[in-house]
Design a binder for these strands. Structure first.
Ligand SMILES: [Zn+2]
Ligand SMILES: [Zn+2]
Ligand SMILES: [Zn+2]
Ligand SMILES: [Zn+2]
Lengths: 161, 161
DNA sequence: TCTGTTTTGTTATGTTATAACATACCTTCC
DNA sequence: GGAAGGTATGTTATAACATAACAAAACAGA
């Protein structure tokens, strides 16, 4: 899962995500309604976490103005079916590039440009489960949010390490 | 860092935390004022994450009623000096049992009883840094919040695994 | 004591999230 | 087609979390 480059064909990202979502919903017998699809599309407008109220405004700009519960319900649906991840440290949401494929949320966040990417390292999951087990704790769900500098921003800052 | 047992001498936890905080502030030349000490004590009232507004109410009950900024300022101070950790997924705060000793936030949260404990596994930090580096990402700060069942609650649920 | 700095108080407001209930919309079975 | 039951959305209000901006007080060093 590479970090998104500053410039890339982002419409491809959106299309891929929407297609994957359709497929996943079909597979699960879940209904990807208009509102849900639109919200997912809006979440995918960038690779940065988006807040619920920003989505609300975007909806308004599309002539689909709504109240908070509408957005939160759509987000809940998308979360429940693994189509987006919640970014707790930012009160925001990002699209998941590979729904269906089981994985906990391991998210990299660039402090400079705000871009997010998934780490998705199974060794990490294992290490956490193992480490927790040593304390007698059994893991059901984990949130990993890592802040730092993305490759692009490091290069800009002259970080050659 | 063991998971706190359901029944334990919690006044000892509080005393130890307060003493450690005094020491750490002395060492740093930071002023642990009345309000800050009281808020820290209130954070330590349990091993569960506490919200800012719950602290506000507790303060009121102590006859020390205050407005939100007072509590948030105290929390900011305690965070800045590593005396508490923020639990992003719960909008809450827990006391740090070993301030001074550098460590990222690795927090275990029991879904049943709500108790929290720190994992504090350096191997985990290393694995994250390494894994991120493979994507060209340099880590500055990480939030790990793991939900699951604590030993006590597992036993209660009959989980023998 | 004076002076500058840090801390706390106070008021107002911004931001994020949910409760509760009404309405509309599909789906299935008759 | 029409009723019944479930699912989804609309709507209003409010709860929960967090900060901006400025005033007053406490503190520390000269
Ligand atoms: Zn893209
Ligand atoms: Zn970046
Ligand atoms: Zn304790
Ligand atoms: Zn428990």
């Amino acid at each position: 899962m590479a970090f998104p480059a500053a410039l890339h064909d982002h419409s491809a990202c959106i299309h891929a995500a929407l297609d994957a979502a359709e497929a996943e919903c079909r597979r699960r017998g879940a209904r990807l309604t208009d509102i849900r699809r639109i919200v997912l599309e809006l979440v995918w407008e960038s690779h940065r976490p988006v807040g619920a109220y920003a989505l609300l405004e975007s909806l308004g700009r599309l002539g689909r103005s709504a109240a908070p519960p509408t957005v939160y319900r759509a987000l809940d649906f998308l979360l429940a079916h693994g189509l987006i991840h919640r970014v707790a440290s930012r009160n925001g949401f990002i699209g998941c590039p590979h729904p269906g494929h089981a994985h906990g949320g391991q998210i990299l966040l660039c402090a400079q440009c705000g871009m997010a990417a998934e780490l998705d390292d199974p060794a990490l999951d294992r290490e956490i489960a193992l480490s927790a087990a040593r304390l007698g704790f059994s893991v059901s769900h984990q949130t990993i949010e890592v802040e730092g500098l993305c490759p692009t921003c490091r290069a800009q800052a002259g970080d050659t390490a």
